[in-house]
Design a protein around this nucleic acid. Structure first.
Lengths: 196, 196
DNA sequence: CCACATGTAGACAGACCTGTCTACATGCCT
DNA sequence: AGGCATGTAGACAGGTCTGTCTACATGTGG
């Protein structure tokens, strides 16, 4: 995708996304976003009156992009057909494995944002909660529609997914693979509760 | 504890701990640590040649303090006597509930540190991994010593614990309680795999 | 008794941060 | 023809950051 052909606002937002996600929000100055997006200061501040506004726009953009990828990655593995089957939850492990293998992977942008600016950028924590809420809903879609404890089970699975994300982010010897193995074991245990 | 009576190095370290944990590492400037610990700049830089050195010392201190609390909190609930029992894993939910209820709770310092400075402070990620490794070992101590999949099970449980921590940190309506409920459900599912 | 670690007080440098400002160009819609 | 959104170029202000510097005080161990 050729970024330089896009209108200024998109260019700024896409550039900020890559920098914020890769290096962190606090570590990325406005000047660097401006230089990298090939825009001038006036243009930037016309679109985003303050850095906090850009951070919020970044989170909204990230949410839309990640959710689309997440739903698609599940769909590519036949989540729709298998939904309700005991094994459908297990697809989460494969999907996470795909994400962790991305060289650009640096954890969940929302978990990171809460750690970095959760208390200082208004609306950041709310967006993080909303993001996780929607993630849980997609996970719930893998479970039998009539299951009474459906949402509770989906939330337990989401806990495992988030745990795997932070473990994979910490890096080290063979962390991403280990995180996926742990997650698979955990999801198997949860799926087994369906048969009782 | 009267901090002002301690030698300068301890005063700096304890002050930095509170500020780094409460507000974040990047958001806390050296000047603020210096002012709050009642020390001068020369004294500070004699003990910690750079901020990164202070960050590493903070992580080491935090690790020792948190692990001691964790082991103690489990012990207070009879973890030693119940170790190996199917229900021992469930103690983790109670222990996390105790932590989440602390007004100073702001997530796991190591997860936060990786998100904030994982790539820029040398040694931060390594310390985070070591911290989690030791946490897993304590969790493994709750499981039957002869269990073949002991470590794998402990790691799966640790994934749930970390997921609960980040969920509780995000705040919102009733997040800490929810995170504990989710964690309990997840640990029950894992404990059930012992009976098969 | 003197050497050294430990401490105090505060100025200073140089970098980077966010955000504002002036002055000018272009193209589109009415 | 005129008005307005959108764009460019770059100087500037005022703050915060990390880290260094000079100059002096105190107490303890060899």
């Amino acid at each position: 995708m050729d970024i330089s052909a896009l209108p200024a606002r998109e260019r700024i937002l896409l550039t900020a996304h890559d920098l914020f996600y890769a290096d962190g929000i606090r570590a990325t100055g406005i000047d660097r976003v401006i230089a990298a997006s090939g825009v001038t200061k006036v243009t930037f501040y016309r679109h985003f009156p303050s850095k906090d506004d850009l951070v919020r726009a970044f989170l909204d953009h990230r949410h839309a992009r990640w959710m689309a990828w997440f739903v698609d990655a599940l769909g590519r593995r036949g989540a729709h057909e298998r939904a309700g089957n005991a094994g459908a939850l297990l697809l989460l492990a494969d999907v996470m494995a795909e994400w962790f293998a991305d060289p650009a992977f640096r954890g969940c942008a929302f978990i990171n944002a809460v750690a970095e600016v959760g208390g200082s950028v208004e609306g950041a924590a709310e967006r993080a909660r909303e993001h996780k809420r929607e993630m849980v809903e997609v996970i719930a879609g893998l479970l039998p529609a009539a299951l009474p404890a459906r949402m509770a089970l989906a939330q337990a699975a989401a806990l495992g997914v988030d745990g795997a994300i932070v473990k994979a982010q910490m890096g080290g010897a063979a962390p991403a693979r280990e995180a996926v193995d742990d997650l698979r074991r955990l999801l198997e245990a949860l799926a087994a509760t369906l048969h009782r």
